[in-house]
């Protein structure tokens, strides 16, 4: 009795104006939400508890709870060295890459901001162009340019008399130098656009009044521009952090999955742990559970940083 009356109440709520509005909203937001839950949230929820198990792969029949063993495994031989190396490479790359954001993006944005020439559009188009290249493409381009003996840049430098094999993309140092450069080259247009967007949003009066007050260019950049583009800076910081730690496709292009040990960054390490060795036929170096553990271990703090920065950005918006 009570049940049928509440059901009746529910149905009449759906018929009321508020109810109908809810149904309309649901009809529009629902399809994508359903997809999103099915192919993104559900997998996430499935994956999370696995970090406390010894699951080898998804077909593993014999799964046991192991608590934090997966975290411990990363800190012990035989994995600790590979994990440490990968972490170190990735962190170093993230750092250098972050510097590149400013070397490429910020400097270019400043130049574009001052430029009044009609060539501006052409320059923008060209600078943004590498953004269209896939990550694999960047990796292959690096091989093309910086390989020992066959790299175009090496050949050019030899031609110009700078000696043989100035850079070697497959060496430890070579990867760490050329990858941020090429990555910076690829993302220059994007970062420039973000900075430029920030610069264009600065009220011109503040720039003009600074000029009237006798601020020179560098003073203006430091005291007028940078404080007012903090939101842009935070956006590129978040982007750069997440992309640096997640970098994968470029490393595939560099042969990270096929034997180039110097291209084993965290994401490649995770891939190898989880299901990498299947491709090469060798024994797997780790378990699926370990792979998920590492990716959480690395990404969760990152995400917290990103969220913190995001909150900061909301608070720092002047306009």
């Amino acid at each position: 009795m009570a049940g049928s009356s509440t059901r009746g109440a529910k149905r009449s709520w759906l018929r009321s104006r508020a109810g109908r509005r809810f149904l309309v909203d649901l009809a529009y937001a629902g399809p994508q939400l359903f997809l999103y839950v099915l192919v993104q949230l559900l997998p996430f929820v499935i994956a999370l508890p696995i970090i406390f198990t010894d699951r080898l792969d998804f077909l593993d029949q014999d799964v046991a709870w192991v608590g934090l063993d997966n975290v411990r495994a990363m800190l012990q031989p035989p994995l600790v060295d590979r994990f440490g190396d990968a972490l170190q490479r990735t962190a170093l790359f993230a750092l250098v890459n972050y510097v590149m954001v400013y070397l490429f993006g910020f400097v270019l944005a400043l130049a574009m901001f001052e430029l009044t020439s009609r060539l501006k559009g052409l320059f923008f188009t060209i600078i943004y162009m590498p953004w269209m290249i896939s990550g694999v493409g960047i990796g292959l381009l690096m091989i093309m340019l910086f390989s020992s003996d066959t790299g175009s840049l090496n050949l050019l430098l030899k031609e110009l008399g700078f000696g043989r094999n100035v850079v070697d993309v497959k060496s430890e140092a070579g990867t760490l130098i050329t990858l941020p450069i090429m990555y910076g080259w690829k993302t220059a247009g994007f970062n420039m656009a973000v900075f430029l967007g920030g610069l264009l949003a600065i009220p011109t009066e503040t720039i003009e009044s600074a000029r009237m007050d006798g601020a020179r260019y560098l003073d203006r950049v430091i005291h007028i521009y940078i404080p007012q583009i903090v939101p842009s800076i935070i956006i590129v910081t978040i982007f750069s952090l997440i992309n640096s730690f997640g970098i994968f496709d470029e490393l595939v292009g560099l042969g990270g999955l096929s034997g180039n040990a110097n291209a084993e960054f965290l994401s490649v390490f995770v891939y190898q742990l989880g299901f990498g060795a299947g491709a090469t036929g060798g024994a797997k170096i780790g378990t699926l559970a370990q792979a998920i553990t590492v990716s959480l271990l690395v990404f969760l703090p990152l995400v917290l940083v990103a969220f913190g920065l995001n909150r900061l950005q909301k608070r720092l918006q002047y306009h």
Binding site: Y36, F44, A47, F58, I242, F275, S295, L296
Partner: peptide, 25 residues
């Protein structure tokens, strides 16, 4: 709440969910 659910997407490493995704697909 729904909006924030979508924002959550940013923090899910693709590598982490690729296998469950494959199973669901």
């Amino acid at each position: 709440f729904t909006y924030n659910l979508y924002m959550l997407n940013m923090i899910i490493p693709p590598m982490m969910v690729i296998l469950p995704q494959y199973l669901i697909m």
